[in-house]
Simulated assay, not measured.
Amino acid sequence: MVEIHGECTGRFEVVREALAAILADDLGASVAVHLDGEPVADIWGGYADEARTVPWERDTITNVWSTTKTMTALCALILADRGDLDLAAPVAKYWPEFAAAGKQDVLVRHLLSHTAGLPGWDEPMTAEDLYDWEKATSRLAAQAPRWEPGTRAGYHAITQGYLVGEVVRRVTGRTLGTFFAEEVAGPLGADFHIGLPAEHDHRVAQIVPPPPNGEERANPPLNPAEANTLPWRRAEIPAANGHGNARSVGEVQSVLACGGTARGVRLLSPEGCERVFEEQFRGTDEVLGAPMRYGMGYGLDTGGFPGPRTCFWGGWGGSLVVNDLDARMTVAFMMNRMAGDTLGDTRAITIVTAAYEALSAG
Protein backbone atom coordinates (compact mmCIF):
# COMPACT_ATOMS: atom_id res chain seq x y z
CA MET A 1 0.00 0.00 0.00
CA VAL A 2 1.32 3.45 -0.92
CA GLU A 3 1.96 5.64 2.10
CA ILE A 4 -0.11 8.82 2.11
CA HIS A 5 1.43 11.75 3.94
CA GLY A 6 -0.22 14.81 5.41
CA GLU A 7 -3.33 15.47 7.45
CA CYS A 8 -7.06 14.85 7.14
CA THR A 9 -9.45 16.00 9.83
CA GLY A 10 -12.15 13.69 11.18
CA ARG A 11 -14.60 12.59 8.56
CA PHE A 12 -12.31 13.61 5.68
CA GLU A 13 -10.17 10.49 6.25
CA VAL A 14 -12.21 9.02 3.41
CA VAL A 15 -10.31 11.38 1.08
CA ARG A 16 -7.02 9.85 2.24
CA GLU A 17 -8.40 6.40 1.47
CA ALA A 18 -9.41 7.56 -2.00
CA LEU A 19 -5.92 8.92 -2.76
CA ALA A 20 -4.31 5.73 -1.47
CA ALA A 21 -6.46 3.68 -3.84
CA ILE A 22 -5.49 5.90 -6.78
CA LEU A 23 -1.77 5.81 -6.04
CA ALA A 24 -1.77 2.03 -5.66
CA ASP A 25 -1.16 1.89 -9.42
CA ASP A 26 -0.27 5.50 -10.23
CA LEU A 27 2.78 7.74 -9.86
CA GLY A 28 2.44 10.84 -7.67
CA ALA A 29 -0.27 13.27 -6.62
CA SER A 30 -1.47 15.74 -4.02
CA VAL A 31 -4.99 16.44 -2.78
CA ALA A 32 -6.41 19.32 -0.78
CA VAL A 33 -9.89 20.03 0.53
CA HIS A 34 -10.64 23.43 2.01
CA LEU A 35 -13.83 24.07 3.98
CA ASP A 36 -14.66 27.64 4.98
CA GLY A 37 -11.21 28.49 3.65
CA GLU A 38 -9.40 26.16 6.05
CA PRO A 39 -7.68 22.90 5.08
CA VAL A 40 -9.52 19.76 6.16
CA ALA A 41 -7.40 17.54 3.91
CA ASP A 42 -3.84 18.27 2.80
CA ILE A 43 -2.26 15.03 1.61
CA TRP A 44 0.21 13.69 -0.92
CA GLY A 45 2.03 10.54 -1.91
CA GLY A 46 3.88 8.59 -4.56
CA TYR A 47 6.79 9.81 -6.67
CA ALA A 48 7.89 12.97 -8.42
CA ASP A 49 9.74 11.17 -11.21
CA GLU A 50 8.90 8.40 -13.62
CA ALA A 51 11.79 6.25 -12.36
CA ARG A 52 10.23 6.33 -8.87
CA THR A 53 13.45 7.49 -7.23
CA VAL A 54 12.25 10.86 -5.89
CA PRO A 55 9.36 10.85 -3.39
CA TRP A 56 6.53 13.36 -3.79
CA GLU A 57 7.14 15.66 -0.82
CA ARG A 58 5.04 18.24 0.99
CA ASP A 59 6.48 21.05 -1.13
CA THR A 60 6.54 19.22 -4.47
CA ILE A 61 4.96 21.25 -7.25
CA THR A 62 4.14 20.37 -10.84
CA ASN A 63 2.82 21.89 -14.06
CA VAL A 64 -0.97 21.85 -13.73
CA TRP A 65 -1.81 22.70 -17.34
CA SER A 66 -5.21 24.36 -17.75
CA THR A 67 -6.01 24.44 -14.06
CA THR A 68 -3.87 27.58 -14.44
CA LYS A 69 -6.87 29.17 -16.18
CA THR A 70 -8.69 29.40 -12.85
CA MET A 71 -5.88 31.62 -11.55
CA THR A 72 -5.97 33.83 -14.64
CA ALA A 73 -9.76 34.12 -14.43
CA LEU A 74 -9.53 35.04 -10.76
CA CYS A 75 -7.17 37.92 -11.64
CA ALA A 76 -9.74 39.24 -14.13
CA LEU A 77 -12.55 38.91 -11.58
CA ILE A 78 -10.49 40.80 -9.00
CA LEU A 79 -9.85 43.66 -11.43
CA ALA A 80 -13.54 43.74 -12.36
CA ASP A 81 -14.52 43.84 -8.69
CA ARG A 82 -12.18 46.79 -8.15
CA GLY A 83 -13.78 48.65 -11.04
CA ASP A 84 -10.55 48.58 -13.06
CA LEU A 85 -11.87 46.19 -15.73
CA ASP A 86 -15.31 46.13 -17.34
CA LEU A 87 -16.08 42.56 -18.40
CA ALA A 88 -18.78 43.84 -20.76
CA ALA A 89 -16.46 46.30 -22.51
CA PRO A 90 -14.78 45.72 -25.86
CA VAL A 91 -11.31 44.25 -25.51
CA ALA A 92 -10.09 47.10 -27.74
CA LYS A 93 -10.96 49.61 -25.00
CA TYR A 94 -7.89 48.33 -23.16
CA TRP A 95 -5.91 46.90 -26.10
CA PRO A 96 -6.57 49.14 -29.13
CA GLU A 97 -4.62 47.00 -31.61
CA PHE A 98 -7.02 44.15 -30.91
CA ALA A 99 -9.78 45.87 -32.91
CA ALA A 100 -8.08 44.80 -36.16
CA ALA A 101 -9.69 42.31 -38.59
CA GLY A 102 -13.24 42.79 -37.37
CA LYS A 103 -12.66 42.24 -33.63
CA GLN A 104 -13.95 45.62 -32.49
CA ASP A 105 -17.00 43.94 -30.94
CA VAL A 106 -15.16 41.19 -29.05
CA LEU A 107 -15.88 41.75 -25.36
CA VAL A 108 -13.73 40.88 -22.37
CA ARG A 109 -16.34 38.35 -21.27
CA HIS A 110 -15.94 36.56 -24.61
CA LEU A 111 -12.28 35.95 -23.76
CA LEU A 112 -13.24 34.46 -20.41
CA SER A 113 -15.85 32.12 -21.92
CA HIS A 114 -14.04 30.71 -24.97
CA THR A 115 -16.51 32.48 -27.27
CA ALA A 116 -14.17 35.08 -28.81
CA GLY A 117 -13.51 33.09 -31.98
CA LEU A 118 -9.75 32.84 -31.36
CA PRO A 119 -9.25 29.22 -30.23
CA GLY A 120 -5.86 29.07 -31.96
CA TRP A 121 -3.43 31.02 -34.08
CA ASP A 122 -3.95 31.22 -37.82
CA GLU A 123 -0.23 31.55 -38.53
CA PRO A 124 1.90 28.47 -37.82
CA MET A 125 3.31 28.58 -34.29
CA THR A 126 6.02 26.56 -32.58
CA ALA A 127 6.35 25.83 -28.89
CA GLU A 128 9.21 28.34 -28.82
CA ASP A 129 6.82 31.03 -30.07
CA LEU A 130 4.82 30.61 -26.88
CA TYR A 131 7.80 31.98 -24.97
CA ASP A 132 7.62 35.25 -26.92
CA TRP A 133 4.77 37.22 -25.38
CA GLU A 134 4.83 39.98 -27.97
CA LYS A 135 4.73 37.56 -30.88
CA ALA A 136 1.93 35.44 -29.38
CA THR A 137 -0.27 38.43 -28.49
CA SER A 138 0.36 40.56 -31.58
CA ARG A 139 -0.55 37.68 -33.87
CA LEU A 140 -3.84 37.20 -32.02
CA ALA A 141 -4.52 40.92 -32.20
CA ALA A 142 -4.03 40.88 -35.98
CA GLN A 143 -6.18 37.89 -36.91
CA ALA A 144 -9.89 37.68 -37.63
CA PRO A 145 -12.28 35.73 -35.38
CA ARG A 146 -13.36 32.34 -36.71
CA TRP A 147 -16.99 32.99 -35.81
CA GLU A 148 -19.14 35.86 -34.66
CA PRO A 149 -17.95 36.49 -31.10
CA GLY A 150 -20.38 35.36 -28.44
CA THR A 151 -22.40 33.07 -30.71
CA ARG A 152 -20.34 29.88 -30.43
CA ALA A 153 -17.76 28.39 -28.08
CA GLY A 154 -14.52 26.63 -28.94
CA TYR A 155 -12.02 25.95 -26.20
CA HIS A 156 -9.21 28.54 -26.29
CA ALA A 157 -6.76 26.02 -24.84
CA ILE A 158 -3.60 28.13 -25.03
CA THR A 159 -4.76 31.44 -26.49
CA GLN A 160 -7.04 32.35 -23.60
CA GLY A 161 -4.10 33.03 -21.32
CA TYR A 162 -2.47 35.43 -23.75
CA LEU A 163 -5.75 37.20 -24.45
CA VAL A 164 -6.77 37.71 -20.83
CA GLY A 165 -3.16 38.19 -19.80
CA GLU A 166 -2.63 41.03 -22.27
CA VAL A 167 -5.80 42.75 -21.07
CA VAL A 168 -4.50 42.47 -17.49
CA ARG A 169 -1.14 43.89 -18.62
CA ARG A 170 -2.79 46.83 -20.38
CA VAL A 171 -4.96 47.59 -17.33
CA THR A 172 -2.33 47.17 -14.61
CA GLY A 173 1.02 47.66 -16.32
CA ARG A 174 2.07 44.28 -14.94
CA THR A 175 2.30 40.89 -16.59
CA LEU A 176 -0.32 38.35 -15.55
CA GLY A 177 2.27 36.33 -13.66
CA THR A 178 3.50 39.38 -11.78
CA PHE A 179 -0.01 40.59 -10.96
CA PHE A 180 -0.94 37.13 -9.73
CA ALA A 181 2.20 36.87 -7.57
CA GLU A 182 1.78 40.31 -6.02
CA GLU A 183 -1.99 40.52 -5.64
CA VAL A 184 -3.08 36.90 -5.14
CA ALA A 185 -0.40 34.34 -4.26
CA GLY A 186 1.61 36.77 -2.14
CA PRO A 187 -1.16 37.91 0.20
CA LEU A 188 -2.42 34.32 0.55
CA GLY A 189 1.04 32.79 1.00
CA ALA A 190 0.21 30.34 -1.79
CA ASP A 191 2.97 28.38 -3.50
CA PHE A 192 1.65 28.80 -7.05
CA HIS A 193 3.61 30.38 -9.89
CA ILE A 194 2.83 31.51 -13.45
CA GLY A 195 6.38 31.79 -14.69
CA LEU A 196 8.53 29.67 -12.35
CA PRO A 197 11.71 31.17 -10.85
CA ALA A 198 14.80 28.95 -11.07
CA GLU A 199 15.09 28.50 -7.31
CA HIS A 200 12.05 26.20 -7.40
CA ASP A 201 13.31 23.82 -10.10
CA HIS A 202 14.60 21.24 -7.63
CA ARG A 203 11.11 20.47 -6.33
CA VAL A 204 9.20 20.20 -9.59
CA ALA A 205 7.64 16.80 -10.29
CA GLN A 206 8.21 15.64 -13.85
CA ILE A 207 5.21 15.54 -16.14
CA VAL A 208 4.80 12.02 -17.53
CA PRO A 209 2.99 12.25 -20.89
CA PRO A 210 0.24 9.81 -21.83
CA PRO A 211 0.86 7.28 -24.60
CA PRO A 212 0.76 9.06 -27.99
CA ASN A 213 -2.61 8.84 -29.71
CA GLY A 214 -1.53 10.09 -33.10
CA GLU A 215 -3.40 13.39 -32.77
CA GLU A 216 -1.84 16.82 -33.04
CA ARG A 217 -2.93 19.19 -30.31
CA ALA A 218 -3.87 22.49 -31.95
CA ASN A 219 -1.40 25.07 -33.21
CA PRO A 220 1.32 24.81 -32.13
CA PRO A 221 1.44 21.01 -31.88
CA LEU A 222 2.40 20.60 -28.25
CA ASN A 223 4.30 17.65 -26.86
CA PRO A 224 3.37 17.43 -23.16
CA ALA A 225 7.02 16.67 -22.37
CA GLU A 226 7.67 20.33 -23.23
CA ALA A 227 6.42 21.09 -19.72
CA ASN A 228 9.61 19.56 -18.32
CA THR A 229 11.87 22.06 -20.11
CA LEU A 230 13.32 25.19 -18.54
CA PRO A 231 12.02 27.58 -21.23
CA TRP A 232 8.47 26.36 -20.53
CA ARG A 233 8.86 26.89 -16.80
CA ARG A 234 10.32 30.37 -17.13
CA ALA A 235 7.71 31.67 -19.59
CA GLU A 236 4.33 33.06 -18.64
CA ILE A 237 1.68 30.95 -20.36
CA PRO A 238 -1.35 31.91 -18.28
CA ALA A 239 -3.62 29.23 -19.70
CA ALA A 240 -1.25 26.31 -19.27
CA ASN A 241 2.03 26.60 -17.34
CA GLY A 242 1.09 27.35 -13.76
CA HIS A 243 3.16 25.38 -11.25
CA GLY A 244 1.74 24.42 -7.89
CA ASN A 245 0.22 21.59 -5.90
CA ALA A 246 -3.22 20.83 -4.55
CA ARG A 247 -2.60 22.82 -1.38
CA SER A 248 -1.67 26.02 -3.20
CA VAL A 249 -4.45 25.65 -5.76
CA GLY A 250 -6.93 25.18 -2.92
CA GLU A 251 -5.52 28.09 -0.94
CA VAL A 252 -6.14 30.43 -3.86
CA GLN A 253 -9.45 29.07 -5.15
CA SER A 254 -11.02 28.81 -1.69
CA VAL A 255 -11.24 32.62 -1.79
CA LEU A 256 -13.87 32.25 -4.50
CA ALA A 257 -15.69 29.47 -2.63
CA CYS A 258 -15.88 31.59 0.51
CA GLY A 259 -17.36 34.83 -0.77
CA GLY A 260 -14.05 36.57 -1.49
CA THR A 261 -12.23 36.04 1.80
CA ALA A 262 -10.11 33.14 3.03
CA ARG A 263 -7.91 32.89 6.10
CA GLY A 264 -8.27 36.59 6.82
CA VAL A 265 -7.38 37.78 3.30
CA ARG A 266 -10.07 39.49 1.20
CA LEU A 267 -9.52 39.56 -2.56
CA LEU A 268 -13.12 39.91 -3.79
CA SER A 269 -16.48 41.13 -2.59
CA PRO A 270 -19.26 38.54 -2.32
CA GLU A 271 -20.86 40.20 -5.35
CA GLY A 272 -17.58 39.87 -7.24
CA CYS A 273 -17.57 36.15 -6.59
CA GLU A 274 -21.12 35.79 -7.87
CA ARG A 275 -20.06 37.04 -11.29
CA VAL A 276 -18.54 33.64 -12.02
CA PHE A 277 -22.10 32.31 -12.42
CA GLU A 278 -23.05 34.75 -15.19
CA GLU A 279 -23.61 32.16 -17.89
CA GLN A 280 -21.91 33.07 -21.16
CA PHE A 281 -22.44 29.87 -23.12
CA ARG A 282 -24.41 26.65 -22.89
CA GLY A 283 -24.09 24.03 -25.61
CA THR A 284 -21.50 21.94 -27.42
CA ASP A 285 -17.96 23.28 -27.39
CA GLU A 286 -16.77 22.96 -30.97
CA VAL A 287 -13.16 22.22 -30.04
CA LEU A 288 -13.79 19.82 -27.16
CA GLY A 289 -16.82 18.25 -28.85
CA ALA A 290 -18.54 18.09 -25.48
CA PRO A 291 -21.51 19.84 -23.85
CA MET A 292 -20.27 22.73 -21.72
CA ARG A 293 -21.58 25.61 -19.65
CA TYR A 294 -19.22 28.55 -19.36
CA GLY A 295 -19.47 31.34 -16.81
CA MET A 296 -16.92 34.08 -16.25
CA GLY A 297 -13.69 32.14 -16.66
CA TYR A 298 -14.88 28.83 -15.20
CA GLY A 299 -16.92 25.85 -16.23
CA LEU A 300 -20.32 25.75 -14.53
CA ASP A 301 -22.09 22.70 -13.18
CA THR A 302 -24.31 20.79 -15.59
CA GLY A 303 -25.61 18.38 -12.96
CA GLY A 304 -22.46 16.38 -12.34
CA PHE A 305 -21.71 17.84 -8.91
CA PRO A 306 -23.91 17.61 -5.81
CA GLY A 307 -23.75 21.37 -5.34
CA PRO A 308 -25.68 23.40 -7.96
CA ARG A 309 -23.60 26.56 -7.38
CA THR A 310 -20.36 24.98 -8.40
CA CYS A 311 -17.64 26.20 -10.73
CA PHE A 312 -14.57 24.28 -11.83
CA TRP A 313 -11.82 23.72 -14.33
CA GLY A 314 -9.13 21.13 -14.89
CA GLY A 315 -5.89 20.58 -16.73
CA TRP A 316 -4.79 18.43 -19.64
CA GLY A 317 -4.19 14.93 -18.33
CA GLY A 318 -6.16 15.01 -15.10
CA SER A 319 -5.73 17.89 -12.64
CA LEU A 320 -8.92 19.51 -11.34
CA VAL A 321 -10.21 22.14 -8.95
CA VAL A 322 -13.86 22.42 -7.90
CA ASN A 323 -15.38 25.34 -5.98
CA ASP A 324 -18.76 24.88 -4.30
CA LEU A 325 -19.96 28.29 -3.17
CA ASP A 326 -22.93 26.92 -1.20
CA ALA A 327 -20.84 24.39 0.73
CA ARG A 328 -17.91 26.86 0.92
CA MET A 329 -15.71 23.97 -0.16
CA THR A 330 -12.80 23.71 -2.59
CA VAL A 331 -11.42 20.36 -3.75
CA ALA A 332 -8.12 20.15 -5.66
CA PHE A 333 -6.29 17.22 -7.24
CA MET A 334 -2.87 17.69 -8.87
CA MET A 335 -0.78 14.87 -10.32
CA ASN A 336 2.21 14.28 -12.61
CA ARG A 337 1.18 11.23 -14.70
CA MET A 338 -1.14 12.44 -17.41
CA ALA A 339 -4.15 10.49 -18.60
CA GLY A 340 -4.77 10.32 -22.32
CA ASP A 341 -8.03 12.28 -22.43
CA THR A 342 -8.03 16.07 -22.85
CA LEU A 343 -10.96 16.25 -20.45
CA GLY A 344 -9.18 14.29 -17.73
CA ASP A 345 -10.14 10.94 -16.21
CA THR A 346 -11.75 9.37 -13.17
CA ARG A 347 -9.00 10.06 -10.62
CA ALA A 348 -10.02 13.60 -9.73
CA ILE A 349 -13.71 12.70 -9.76
CA THR A 350 -12.96 9.93 -7.26
CA ILE A 351 -11.43 12.54 -4.95
CA VAL A 352 -14.31 15.00 -5.40
CA THR A 353 -16.82 12.24 -4.71
CA ALA A 354 -14.98 11.31 -1.50
CA ALA A 355 -14.94 14.95 -0.38
CA TYR A 356 -18.70 15.27 -0.84
CA GLU A 357 -19.20 11.96 0.95
CA ALA A 358 -17.24 13.35 3.90
CA LEU A 359 -19.17 16.61 3.78
CA SER A 360 -22.53 14.82 3.88
CA ALA A 361 -21.34 12.70 6.79
CA GLY A 362 -20.85 15.80 8.89
Rank of each mutant, 00 (worst) to 15 (best):
R328H: 13
A88N: 13
A99V: 09
Y94A: 05
L325T: 15
G37V: 14
F281K: 13
T68A: 08
V184Y: 01
L359Y: 15
S360I: 00
V40N: 08
A257C: 12
I61S: 02
A144I: 05
G117T: 04
S248C: 10
E17H: 05
V167R: 06
N223L: 08
L196M: 07
D341P: 00
G177P: 11
A21Q: 10
E274P: 02
D49A: 04
A332E: 03
G299P: 00
Q206P: 00
P90D: 09
Y94I: 04
G244E: 00
M329D: 09
T70S: 15
M71Q: 10
N219C: 10
E182W: 11
P124M: 11
T151A: 11
E50P: 01
T175L: 06
D105Y: 13
W133C: 03
A218G: 10
P96N: 04
H34I: 03
G289P: 02
E97G: 15
E123P: 05
L19T: 00
I43A: 04
G154N: 12
G362M: 11
P270Y: 08
A290P: 00
G161D: 06
P96I: 09
R16C: 08
H34E: 14
L288Q: 02
P187H: 07
T68H: 04
D86C: 07
D84H: 03
Y294K: 14
D25T: 06
F192W: 09
V208I: 10
D324F: 02
R309V: 03
G165K: 04
G165E: 07
